[in-house]
Computed example of a mutant assay.
Amino acid sequence: MATDPVAEAADALYALVPEEFTAARNERAAEARGAGETAAAKAITGLRRPSPSAWIVNRLARDEPDRVGDLVGLGGELADAQAAGDGRALGALVAERRELIGDLMRLASGLADAADRTPSRAVLDEVEQTLVAASVSAEAGSAVASGRLVRALRAVGVDVDLAGAVGGGEPGPPRRLGRRPAERAEGRADAASRPANIRVTARATDPDAAAEQARRDRERREAAVAAARERADDDAHALAEASVRRDAAEQRFEDLEAERDELERRLSEVRDELRPAEREVRIATRAHESAVAEAERSARARDEAEAALSDDEA
């Protein structure tokens, strides 16, 4: 169990469905800040919400630690067989890995469906790639088994890029290092007798443990329903607000269109009135020019007549 406050918070947060992650993370950070753990609060705030495929792998690591541990442990056996050049053992181990991953993929689909999160083909492909990566790299196996993945993993040969892949610091040792080959074979035979869409939880056969598991499952389903209802209410409220904004925008658009049409109509009228007005201006201008010329002639004639009168009187 984690003792570091950041890793402890990460363990709790990455057990949640992605939709609950952000609010719970912020609450944890606030608690750490209130306790005076400023550095831890900052680190918790920096924890990233898991991708859909990472969430499914985290659920597998927590709900199916034996099978995930089998896969991680199988990686070491594969490496040993390859180093020894034992082709027969390598072929058998590759086939066993294929079966293990097939079992885990069926369980992954069941886990997602039980949480009302039917995954897309692309998400399931990422889950499968991550499981393969866990079997070819010890570090990737530890990351997957930690149950704190943030994103999917992909193996390139025997190399896996783990930068930023795990929330809450470097993962510790895997929760399970895998069982011996005989135990794995027995586990597969046991799994084959169960329906593929039913989750197997820690091989529990005790009625009390089964009842407790059923109770937890129901609580998770009820929490999922409550979250879905809350999201639906929020979305309905957002839809109502968006409808009001849309109606107001449409009304404003219609008003502006009507105003534009009125302005275009008035502009057409003004243009029609402008042509005769221009003619009137031209006529009036010519008349004004003629009047000015006539006035100037009259003024000159007056001035000449007054001058002549003055000469006669003299």
Rank of each mutant, 00 (worst) to 15 (best):
V244E: 15
R302V: 15
R194I: 14
A79R: 05
K42I: 14
E254H: 10
A210L: 14
P195T: 07
G178I: 00
E96P: 09
P65F: 01
D217I: 00
R67L: 07
A284S: 12
L263G: 07
P5L: 02
K42D: 15
R297A: 08
V72K: 05
A54G: 09
R245K: 08
D159Q: 11
R265E: 13
E289S: 14
V68S: 02
E313Y: 11
H288L: 11
A232T: 13
A152P: 03
A133W: 02
R175Y: 01
V57E: 00
A112D: 01
G164D: 09
A133H: 01
A301F: 11
L309G: 12
R33L: 15
I198T: 12
W55L: 04
R260T: 14
V156D: 14
D234W: 08
S120F: 03
E280M: 04
A165I: 05
R184W: 05
L13F: 08
G36W: 03
A12K: 09
V225I: 12
L78M: 13
E313M: 12
A23D: 14
R179M: 09
P276F: 07
A299E: 10
A84Q: 04
P65I: 07
A12W: 06
T45A: 15
R49E: 01
A30C: 11
L239S: 13
A81G: 04
E31Y: 14
I44G: 03
A7L: 06
A277W: 12
P181I: 07
G157T: 07
E19K: 04
R246G: 11
V150T: 07
